[in-house]
Nucleic acid binder design. Structure first.
Lengths: 247, 247
DNA sequence: TCGAATTTGTGCGTATGTATC
DNA sequence: GGATACATACGCACAAATTCG
């Protein structure tokens, strides 16, 4: 069984892009042109180009044409233990390292733990927690989303119950937990990737379906997990850099 | 301007999937059914389902129907400094931690550095290097691909010039470099994600276009970078876990 | 500034082949 | 074998954005 025509066309174009015959910024043949060259209907040419768009090789500008994507310079988001211990949140440290001002908005509310979060925090689904939703900005652009969960069992009635209010606001989880005697000794970050959900795409100002890196972060003391966060980063603009010491 | 119909339909279905109203394995309405429900042509229903397929939420079985994808249990690939110093490669340590036998195939050849690799190794494009291409397997399944580059300037004429031959075969870069007096003190791993290229999809036994995590790893001594590797991992089967100590 | 041509995005209806049930 | 459902393909139509004379 031969490959479908539209895939064959896409293969030809993809090879031209990878080999550099169609450099970044180059204009692809219009779907009319493709249809003529391959002697097929213009829908088929369109399907081919659409496939390349889905694969991230091509960007279409309505009314103008389809172009080989410029791979934008990726910013680095550094998540190393060096910078983390200099105080503040990993995000602040990373933005400071890049010489860019980092700001954020957030909102906090009481919420019951989802099953997945409860599992990571060693609790039961439905247990009470404070949920804080962050949007991190750099240079006015949204950089990163985060949903952070802290068990109320730990923070209820303490000065740090509300992460972004009171004397310890904006200090980062590690310093805040230290205030109530919880010494965070290690973090676990599980990195994965998927297409952005519609709401995430809107908040991050990226196209729906664009790839995002996800980090499931869990902060732990020697005894127990004390915070869990789900972090979302658009992969087109940022790559995640881990600096790992080796002994 | 309202969103196009097919996207609206896809949004409805996606929400149902994410919320659990359509659990993994559930059958979606056929495109005929969708067309009837939304009072559009069946082509439009098809476009909606196709979008969800591209996003990885749905899997179509020809002649049967379209189904919510089973998210397979993700294996964890741990990359922590704890396990790394226990000798051997990060891959071996991760597989050992998961209680699964890890094996690999590789082939080594002399090759000039690409511009990107030369940049990471602090060398010039075209400088001679040993390039080793790995396919790592776990339980007979391909888990991870890697292309490793070591500057011949360092290893030429030493016992470790060929990574997988001689007395130091299979020991991992850190131990091998120690043999020639290069003490690797830290690693940098830049994590990103993209659709798999055709050749990678074939080698990893995944569908073309499926997402992969990419790691650009650079091993450094205090003085200089000594190895660079490009690692590719299918995101559907593995999530990357970093364990970071916090002080 | 205006208008025509081009190109993409979306949509309709139909047809054929093939896989599944 | 027949009904159903998906995969691909054809040809057409119109709206919106862009380009250019």
């Amino acid at each position: 069984m031969p490959a479908p025509t539209y895939q064959r066309i896409a293969d030809d174009l993809r090879r031209a892009i990878v080999d550099g015959d169609l450099p970044p910024g180059a204009k692809l043949p219009s779907r009319h042109e493709l249809a003529r060259q391959y002697e097929v209907s213009d829908r088929v040419g369109m399907e081919a180009v659409r496939l390349l768009i889905a694969e991230g090789f091509v960007e279409a500008r309505s009314g103008s044409g389809s172009y080989v994507r410029q791979r934008p310079e990726m910013q680095r988001l550094t998540r190393s233990w060096y910078t983390q211990r200099k105080g503040g949140s990993p995000f602040r440290a990373a933005m400071a390292a890049a010489g860019r001002p980092g700001t954020w908005e957030c909102s906090t509310e009481r919420a019951p733990m989802t099953p997945a979060i409860a599992d990571r925090l060693g609790a039961n689904a439905g247990d009470p927690a404070m949920r804080t939703i962050y949007t991190f900005m750099g240079d006015g652009e949204p950089v990163m989303l985060s949903i952070s969960w802290e068990p109320l069992e730990l923070t209820q009635g303490t000065a740090i119950m509300l992460p972004e209010e009171g004397p310890h606001a904006g200090k980062g989880v590690i310093d805040r937990m230290a205030v109530i005697g919880q010494q965070i000794t290690h973090a676990e970050e599980a990195v994965s990737a998927r297409p952005a959900l519609a709401t995430e795409a809107r908040r991050l100002n990226i196209r729906p379906g664009a790839l995002v890196l996800t980090i499931a972060r869990t902060y732990r003391t020697d005894d127990r997990p004390v915070e869990a966060a789900d972090i979302v980063i658009p992969v087109e603009r940022y790559s995640l850099v881990y600096e790992v010491p080796v002994r």
